[in-house]
Write a protein that binds this DNA or RNA. Structure first.
Lengths: 192, 192
DNA sequence: TCTTTCACTGGTCACTTGACAAGCCAACGA
DNA sequence: TCGTTGGCTTGTCAAGTGACCAGTGAAAGA
């Protein structure tokens, strides 16, 4: 690959990563392309140059976020021994992902509350597969949606509102032992 | 009370109610005072007249939302028979409140992700008491925060992203039997 | 009855927003 | 080597944004 092409990809990646942070922090409406540019260490014009619209950038950010998590999930689940403990460990892994990337939860909530383009895109492109897995996991057609959203909520909320959790309970959700305790709590909750 | 004072209170209440919807829909940054005014059936100037700043209006909306839910929760818990089923029924009630007022979840997430004035206000004014109750309920000092956020997430997310849930799973979270099924699911989850 | 009060309206303000366009210059290709 | 490409910067634009203010008219008080 040429120097220029490499530089281009590198810059785009930096902007997308900054966009993930910004959209998670402020929501789609609240995040500004200027703020994203600053986080990426450049200027607003460059964001418009690489991504035609703000919505395009959001889609790129959602893709990056979801693909990264899907890959990591698949990789970590792969090396798991089968048996009764497998289900619980799967849940622990899912909780750890939520802890490392609270942006996932924010994208889900921010896009999911309206029936719009962003919600449709998330559902069609990324969520269908993940939901199908949970549905197969529960086996229960009737309660699949309930299990899915209860799990996602129980796993992600703590890390999504980490500053509030710190102020309210004194618990720092970024600490490793807190993450592990939550992973264990959720795992035992859903697989007693 | 005079006609004017009554009218004033009525108008303020209308604006606050519109603000709850708007802030839940778009977040603090995304919601505009003009949109709030339109939802309330008036003009932007009147919003500024009744509430000095947008942040003031947000605080009034948060108060209204939290007080309403605290009252309802207390009232419904009051008539509950003691016994082994009491814990489960408490959880069902909590889920039903989340279903009726998904705005609660959105306020929590929107304010809770940053260490700022709104987050502090929510914690100090409304959340402390509620968390203390959950902590007393679990009895377990070590896991109180984990139980609290797992419960809040598991109860609220489904209704907070109802449009997404509909598109993803076909389940309409506004239907009464879906609400009851989720209430039962969460209740059995936390009190097996 | 007549003045005062005040909830409410319409319009203006400085400022921010996303999108766009002209120019710059190092990397590229001939 | 020299013209071209294209990533990038700077500046500009219309469309909002929250806050503010003078004016209005009906209710309240004298």
């Amino acid at each position: 690959m040429t120097t220029r092409a490499l530089q281009r990809e590198h810059t785009r990646a930096r902007i997308v990563e900054a966009a993930i942070e910004a959209f998670a922090d402020r929501g789609f409406d609240g995040a500004t392309t200027r703020d994203i540019a600053t986080r990426a260490g450049t200027n607003q014009g460059l964001v418009s140059y690489h991504f035609e619209t703000k919505a395009d950038l959001w889609r790129a950010a959602a893709d990056r976020l979801c693909n990264e998590l899907a890959e990591r999930l698949e990789r970590e689940l792969d090396g798991l021994p089968s048996g009764s403990e497998r289900a619980r460990e799967s849940l622990r892994i899912f909780v750890r992902l939520n802890a490392q990337r609270p942006a996932l939860f924010h994208f889900l909530v921010d896009a999911g509350r309206h029936d719009g383009d962003r919600m449709r895109y998330l559902v069609e492109t990324h969520l269908r597969r993940r939901f199908a897995e949970v549905a197969r996991f529960t086996g229960d057609e009737e309660h699949a949606a309930h299990a899915y959203y209860a799990l996602a909520g129980a796993s992600g909320l703590l890390f999504a509102v980490a500053p509030e959790c710190r102020a309210l309970t004194g618990v720092d959700a970024s600490e490793a032992d807190v993450i592990e305790r939550h992973a264990d709590y959720v795992a035992r909750l859903f697989v007693p």
